[in-house]
Design a protein around this nucleic acid. Structure first.
Lengths: 227, 227
DNA sequence: CGCACGCATCTACCATACAAGATTGAGGAA
DNA sequence: TTCCTCAATCTTGTATGGTAGATGCGTGCG
């Protein structure tokens, strides 16, 4: 059972292995707690241990792998506290972003309206993946409008932790509600209402909050025990 | 001219090289734009290319090095926009932290008072390094009190960019003023005044703001040209 | 039967060798 | 002089072998 060939094109082998492994991890093809080894992955992808090793280092720095010297490397279990703090980071930054955008709306209104329209189309067509992409684009666009697109990349890195949880709770997307909340945010931004925009953003981000404890109950072995 | 032996003790060689190189970079012993190579560093530290290579990967992910495949690796120049956004990230998170701490002061008052007292001692003794350490501890302690110490690690990673700028502006520490601002923050926290604590924290963080443009003027070749 | 010791086997770590692209400089032609 | 060509020599990327430490299982002893 091979895992699908690495597209033999650009970039270095190491970076291709990074991408392939990251996909396997966030989609739960590699489950938290799974033991992997350099030789194992190297064999599966048909490369030597060296690029795999470098991929491990990168993924370990991103918090997806745990390299235990002289022992073995395992897919890091999801830390409930880490998820909580990742959300804290995201909320801190997104709240500050929405404040700044609302303080200087500029052409934000038209841009956001376009994105929301696209989301409604995707939602009507039951295009879950497309909606998810547009949802992410909505938030990244806000970062761009605030002039801190790089800060979004930071959120993106830590969002992988959240994405693993999200993948476990697939199906309950309720895109209608998300769209309504996006409209609220956009309206407050257009009105230059910083406080209102902040409140709407906090409410929007808080919606996912309730899912974690249920997910832990469903898959206890994917999470670290409460320390 | 060797660079000082790596303490032959614990950890792996790669991690020791990471620490040594990071110190050289933030203290400007390795200047932005400097070209380094795996073989070069390997020779200087008396190890093979392999651990150096792995150290390069880690430092590149932290934004301190730029690895150019098949060409060379250079110490990344400081990006003025990156500094601006690193400050944005730090302010976003620290403001959120101080809000939460002020909302639930707990035993914050006593802990913070202790730290400030230590800072006054260090300042009186002209112990610049000690003061800097305690200053950092003050902020990290706030993160711990808010229950998001992990979030501080994130700030710490990105603070290296800021530290390089700080190192270029050494001597103008004005620790007296910093201590006064710390007291303001602690007082607002003790009073449970969230808004006041947030304002004090913003003012505290904004103080370093003015130095950047002057620093760019003094060392233009250490910075990326405005894109 | 239970426990401790030891060896086979696994792991990541490090060193070394080779490969391939990029740079740089010299040298020759226009 | 100026520009083009090409080869020596850099660089990082990849492959492979050897090493030390940790694990786990089987064996032998009490």
């Amino acid at each position: 059972m091979t895992v699908g060939e690495l597209e033999a094109s650009e970039e270095t082998m190491a970076l291709r292995v990074v991408g392939a492994l990251r996909d396997e991890i966030v989609t739960m093809a590699l489950k938290p707690g799974d033991v992997i080894s350099e030789s194992d992955i190297a064999g599966r992808y048909g490369v030597s241990r060296q690029p795999v090793r470098e991929a491990f280092i990168r993924l370990a720095q991103q918090g997806l792998l745990l390299i235990r010297p002289k022992r073995a490397t395992i897919v890091k279990k999801i830390s409930p506290d880490g998820v909580r703090q990742s959300r804290f980071i995201r909320e801190s930054i997104e709240v500050e972003i929405i404040r700044r955008v609302a303080a200087r709306p500029g052409d934000a209104e038209a841009v956001l309206a376009d994105l929301i329209a696209g989301q409604e189309t995707a939602s009507a067509a039951d295009d879950n993946l497309g909606f998810h992409t547009l949802d992410e684009l909505f938030h990244r666009t806000l970062a761009r409008l605030a002039g801190v697109e790089y800060a979004w990349q930071l959120i993106d890195d830590h969002k992988m932790q959240l994405d693993r949880v999200r993948f476990l709770t697939l199906g309950v997307s309720s895109s209608q509600r998300a769209i309504a909340e996006h409209k609220e945010i956009a309206a407050a931004v257009a009105a230059g209402d910083s406080a209102g925009a902040e409140a709407a953003m906090r409410a929007h981000l808080a919606r996912a909050e309730v899912l974690l404890s249920q997910t832990i109950a469903d898959h206890p072995d994917y999470f670290e025990p409460v320390h």
